[in-house]
Design a protein around this nucleic acid. Structure first.
Lengths: 240, 240
DNA sequence: GGAGGGAGATACGACGTCCTACGTCCGGGC
DNA sequence: GCCCGGACGTAGGACGTCGTATCTCCCTCC
């Protein structure tokens, strides 16, 4: 009699490859055994190996370079971005609700984080933030809403939390930000019609931070998010 | 002359399958075309189809059931859990730092969320939370630290934010919680040596919430996290 | 002697075919 | 009427083959 409920090859191979990385203490960028070596080591066919590696690639746990080899991946939050984007787009009619959920999480995170960061930000970091805002002003002032303005917005929020020394925070916020932007693009939303207001909100945040006004900084961040939410609601009303 | 930098089949197929789901407005659980149909529709081999589906399965965008068919997935945060777990374990020596990062995000989230939820929690929901704490007490009191205690802990934190109406929040917190637990397990950490203190911290949170004491609830949550952080530091010191 | 280019090695990308495993459903036997 | 077993559809897995991308190294040309 055969064993019942045997685990599928592919998922077993996935675990074995991960375990191999862990056991050998490999870090991001380190080369993995070739597909041929893996199929021999694990005693499975090349198809199974490839399917397992494809799955791990989707999780950014391995990186496959055509004609070169397979490498340990950076384990970024790309899968989260893909998943959230799909999930939001797949709500077909109610993507406003899905975006609002993401926005609320971002809001709670940033309002809590800015308090933690307010006390420890150095003057140099504040100067840097102010520089980003200034660049936003000139980018918005030209009337040319290319790709630079959103990038600066993202840069602002990332620079804001750099001093935390928490690598996960900017990645997580960046993931949410990217989802928001991708969904906006897929829905054909227009650019921010009032960039000068958006820029001012950012400047308010820096001003409060420079004054070491924790409450004020949090309030300014909250106001900023009210603006984003209002715009999202507007757009989805206009389109839907 | 050939076109340079042609996109790989597999990733193109991935996008096409996702687009198919979006175009047909399919929702979680809906059946997808069979592998044979896809290979004909997209004009590619079955292996390519399978590799693409495997990648989408890893993202929980599709669900494959052996011998039955392929279906639209729930797009849960499983990929995030897998990614964060790997990422933490792959830091080999410094997993304490990685766990601390996750813990800090959880902490900021929960401290911000509890403020938003404090005003809107109904008495019935408070009763439910208190019931969970009571069950934690009896589970801890027996001395038998099986799997129920951690499950109750998770249940507590999920029930706490149910009234937000934000489906993403409990999933995100659950993901972080699961990563923490998996890493703990992989590192062979022991069970909470002082469950009675942990239970008390939970009860303090409920008490503050019942008194509609927003500041107190946030403080109680902060204290709870101090405890978790201390225990994590202790364990990793003991093992490392 | 050094820079550029081509040949070969290496490794992933894709395909076709075959067989197996799983699950459903229907029909025959009890 | 119930139960069991086999047919059928679908995914899982294996093998062999060819195609294509990247790197390396050596040879040629300047």
């Amino acid at each position: 009699m055969r064993r019942m409920s045997e685990e599928p090859r592919t998922s077993r191979i996935q675990r074995q490859v991960v375990q191999l990385i862990l056991d050998r203490r490999l870090t991001a960028g380190a080369p993995l055994p070739t597909e041929a070596e893996l199929m021999e080591t694990l005693g499975v066919s090349r198809n199974s190996v490839r399917e397992a590696l494809k799955a791990l690639q989707a999780l950014d746990i391995v990186e496959i370079r055509h004609g070169f080899g397979t490498y340990v991946g950076k384990a970024s939050l790309t899968p989260l971005v893909d998943g959230l984007t799909f999930r939001t787009l797949a709500r077909h009619d109610d993507d406003t609700g899905a975006l609002a959920e993401i926005l609320q999480v971002r809001e709670v995170l940033e309002e809590g984080l800015i308090r933690r960061v307010a006390a420890t930000l150095t003057e140099a970091e504040l100067d840097n933030l102010e520089g980003v805002v200034t660049r936003m002003e000139s980018a918005g002032g030209t009337g040319r809403m290319g790709s630079t303005f959103p990038d600066l917005d993202r840069e602002f929020h990332e620079a804001l939390y750099a001093s935390l020394g928490n690598a996960l925070v900017p990645q997580l916020l960046g993931a949410f930000w990217t989802v928001f932007r991708r969904v906006s693009g897929a829905r054909g939303w227009t650019d921010d019609p009032t960039p000068e207001i958006t820029v001012r909100r950012h400047r308010d945040i820096v001003t409060a931070l420079r004054a070491r006004d924790v409450e004020g900084a949090q309030r300014a961040m909250a106001v900023h998010f009210r603006g984003i939410e209002a715009r999202a609601a507007e757009e989805s009303r206009g389109v839907g």
